[in-house]
Amino acid sequence: MTELVLRIALTVAAALVATGLYGALSQQSIVMIMMGLELVVNGLILGAGAFWWAGGGGTDASVLVVVLVTVMAVEMALGFAVALALYRARQVDLTDDAAELAG
């Protein structure tokens, strides 16, 4: 029973990671790419939570959830900073318009 729930939760987590990967690879808008990355981290959080539930007692998995939540906050803050810097420099919001690094 516990093992079955763990496997179902991990399958859902895999689906979330794959969906986020599709979004991050295919979207052109910078904000939509960030949404894809957030979905990947969302899947990782679910996987860590499921392992905590099935593993019983240990704190390693819940510490991993704390790390992942922090990763999400850092990704979001720096992503917005880069989007803002890019918009200030050339008024673009699509990655295809920002293919060169020259300022």
Partner: peptide, 30 residues
């Protein structure tokens, strides 16, 4: 506002297949 839609779908499906196979085939200690 997408580029390389089918390539991205293919990569995402392969990743999902690998991860889901791991979820069902690996013996997890509970």
């Amino acid at each position: 506002m997408v580029h390389n839609r089918w390539g991205s779908w293919a990569i995402a499906l392969v990743v999902f297949g690998l991860l889901a196979a791991g979820a069902w085939l690996v013996p997890f200690p509970t």
